[in-house]
Amino acid sequence: MSLKVTWTLVAAAASLFVRDAAQAKSFEDVRCKCICPPYRNITGHIYNRNVSQKDCNCLHVVEPMPVPGHDVEAYCLLCECKYEERSSNTIKVTIIIYLSVVGALLLYMLFLLLVDPLIRKHDPYTQPLHNEEDAEEMRPQVDSGQGRGNTVLERVEGAQQRWKKQVQEQRKTVFDRHKMLS
């Protein structure tokens, strides 16, 4: 089910992408950015304008010109103009892929939250224990010869129990050595 929903989301995003590609002219992927520092009594300012790369200079980008005609050349020498390009289509595709992956992971998490209680088998013979060490000793060992451990969940659970047991043994070893040294 989650795979079907994921593909539906991808198809919807792709249709939006195709529709937006037809309207690509409305997105400005190129610009000239001029950063002009303060000059005499004029504060600094950043100017952006969509012009070609050859027209990326102060005279074509800075409008209205904040200085009178005889100071234009001095003012433009202080301005730093850079031509910038970006690909809005690449940005859109990246965001669509990212959101699709996050959505698929969320759906998978919800699936596991709903199905996990149904998959886990509760043993009515074990009582809840308050001590972690006693819980490790009383837990039945998973034996592959009994037919258990076939599902991924049971294998992960078994690996988790082995890891917890190793950590518990390491703690005991460290505390025993600490007691011996002091």
Rank of each mutant, 00 (worst) to 15 (best):
S15L: 14
K33E: 02
R31D: 00
N57V: 06
N48M: 08
C34F: 01
A14I: 15
C36S: 11
N41F: 10
K54C: 08
V61P: 00
C56G: 05
D20Q: 15
T43I: 10
S26F: 12
V62M: 07
Y47V: 00
I46E: 13
I42L: 10
L16I: 11
E63C: 08
P38E: 07
P38M: 01
A13N: 14
H60Q: 14
A22C: 13
D20A: 14
L59E: 15
N41D: 14
A11E: 12
A24K: 11
Q23Y: 10
Y39E: 01
R19T: 12
K33F: 02
H60V: 12
G44K: 05
K25E: 10
H45R: 10
Y47S: 03
K25P: 03
V51A: 01
D29R: 00
C58P: 05
V18P: 02
S15P: 06
S26L: 07
A24I: 07
R19G: 12
A12Q: 12
E63L: 13
R31L: 00
L59A: 15
C56Q: 05
I42G: 05
R31C: 03
T43H: 10
F17V: 09
E63N: 14
A21L: 12
V51I: 06
A14P: 08
I35P: 03
F27E: 04
A13R: 09
H45I: 03
E28I: 03
C32Q: 00
I35K: 14
L16A: 11
S26Q: 15
V18N: 08
A21W: 14
S15D: 12
R49T: 02
F17Q: 12
K54V: 10
N50L: 06
S26D: 10
S52Q: 07
P38L: 00
K25T: 09
